[in-house]
Design a protein around this nucleic acid. Structure first.
Lengths: 101, 101
DNA sequence: GTCACACTTAAGTCAGTGCTTAAGTATTCG
DNA sequence: CGAATACTTAAGCACTGACTTAAGTGTGAC
């Protein structure tokens, strides 16, 4: 799941770095204080939920972000937030109507 | 952290239910296949990250969603997504320019 | 061919998470 | 007051998640 993937600070950092452009596995690993296999495991989580995609050319795997999946995650939150806000608006309307009487 | 909180399916269900209106702890627990203390623990996570707030009146605690925090989470993803998309646009522009020459 | 590079796979460790049950506290109702 | 309600706290336990190291595999450069 997308939110589970974004729940880890390392994975957010990877997404952050990838938002500035594609990168190889070792480029992504460079700034991170952990072993390369650990980074590969994080990348796997990000790919499994569709936040990141990658292709291997020769011996280097290049990763990039998938905006479609990010958009879906945004929407999930947005829908619940706006639902709540619409409810509040209806409530305000109702209260205003009542005080007019 | 917000994304960690949303990473759990039970907590997403709670947020979902709360988006339709405030609810008490036992109302939130009713549809969930687990004990009430388990639900309280989930609520604690949701409150600690600011996604939910609650107040106790008498012996019933009423919970509601905090749209401000939801908006922040949306933005985090949105910023990375748009950053990536802007990068792609600039690249397109550059390529178009090159092919004109 | 051989060496270095860029991963990849596998196995194991250890802390954190998501539950449980059992017992408590505070409030309301009769 | 006594019982029922609505949580609350605490302890324990199984499982998952985030690492590690060690040993592969496939590619490119010389």
């Amino acid at each position: 799941m997308v939110f589970h993937a974004l729940g880890d600070p390392t994975r957010r950092q990877i997404v952050d770095q990838l938002s500035h452009g594609p990168a190889s596995v070792s480029e992504l690993a460079a700034p991170l204080p952990m072993s390369l296999p650990a980074v590969v495991q994080h990348l796997r989580v990000l790919q499994d939920c569709g936040l990141v995609e990658s292709e291997k050319v020769g011996r280097v795997r290049t990763c990039r972000v998938r905006p479609v999946t990010m958009r879906k995650a945004e929407r999930w939150i947005e829908e619940r937030r706006t639902e709540w806000e619409r409810r509040l608006d209806r409530l305000d309307e109702y209260l205003a109507e009542q005080s007019d009487k």
